[in-house]
């Protein structure tokens, strides 16, 4: 896909340390995501991908550097100001079961974004939720189910429904298919691609699976020990890897 103007997300010199040794921390991470683009972040476990996702989502405070979302500096944004911006950048978690309050029904899970940001009148909740469930390929009848009563694929579809309800410009996908059966992975990825085509949402796609990244992402960055070792168009990076980390990841892709 073409590079479009005006980055939706701009990350500059982001750094984060845990403990004394900086394990799984980040150092000088620099990248941007354009409108409607998919940027993959790949790396082995412990390379700092998930930390990066949590920093971008403002779930963790960074140590240094800046995060700009739609041109606004959100690095130090807190409280009401941050809450007002929340609907515009959403996240889908790796483990779809852990991402839901075990006591909340699908209805309650999907009502929350509508209620918190006043996106629909109370009387319309069920209509909006039903339509969104159908949009992500689920029956509106599932509205009364608890997360435990859904399959892994269904749960991830509900998680995606929750993320798109607020019509965000950016969705951070933290390994959205790695906890799923291989048979449903392609369905979920196709759903995400369809939604992107329809709404023009940008994805920051965290993954360690290069086969998935090749099919899914426009550009990719490769991380190793909290640093970016390589950046580029997905095809180019995979065809002509420059760093060791990338070569190791490529070698790890199973060939049948």
């Amino acid at each position: 896909m073409m590079q479009r103007a005006s980055p939706i997300l701009e990350v500059r010199n982001l750094a984060k340390r845990f403990g004394d040794h900086g394990a799984a921390g980040l150092r000088n991470v620099d990248f941007s995501v354009s409108n409607g683009e998919t940027l993959a972040v790949v790396g082995a476990s412990g390379s700092g991908k998930t930390t990066l996702a949590r920093l971008v989502m403002r779930l963790l405070p960074p140590e240094a550097g800046s995060i700009h979302f739609r041109g606004q500096d959100i690095t130090a944004l807190r409280g009401e100001g941050l809450r007002r911006l929340r609907p515009h950048f959403q996240m889908v978690f790796q483990d779809p079961l852990a991402a839901f309050n075990p006591r909340a029904s699908v209805r309650r899970v999907l009502e929350d974004p509508l209620r918190l940001h006043g996106l629909a009148a109370k009387a319309e909740y069920d209509t909006v939720i039903g339509a969104t469930l159908e949009r992500v390929g689920l029956s509106a009848d599932l509205i009364t189910r608890l997360p435990l009563e859904l399959s892994g694929g269904q749960r991830q579809r509900v998680a995606i429904a929750r993320a798109i309800l607020t019509k965000p410009d950016l969705i951070v996908l933290d390994e959205p298919v790695s906890a799923l059966d291989v048979s449903v992975r392609a369905q979920i990825l196709n759903l995400l691609l369809d939604l992107q085509e329809e709404t023009g949402v940008a994805y920051l796609f965290i993954s360690h699976d290069l086969a998935v990244v090749r099919a899914f992402a426009d550009r990719m960055i490769v991380m190793e020990e909290g640093r970016i070792t390589e950046t580029g168009m997905t095809e180019q990076v995979l065809a002509n890897p420059q760093s060791n980390a990338t070569r190791i990841l490529i070698a790890a892709v199973p060939r049948l």
């Binding site: 941050l82 929340r86 959403q90 996240m91 991402a99 918190l116």
Partner: peptide, 26 residues
């Protein structure tokens, strides 16, 4: 520290609601 609490935060839920509606019942 669980993901569903992080999810509530990314939705912009206020801390007291997270504490008493999401965490306490569990």
């Amino acid at each position: 520290e669980r993901d569903f609490v992080a999810a509530a935060r990314t939705l912009g839920m206020r801390p007291l609601e997270i504490a008493f509606r999401e965490i306490l019942p569990n």
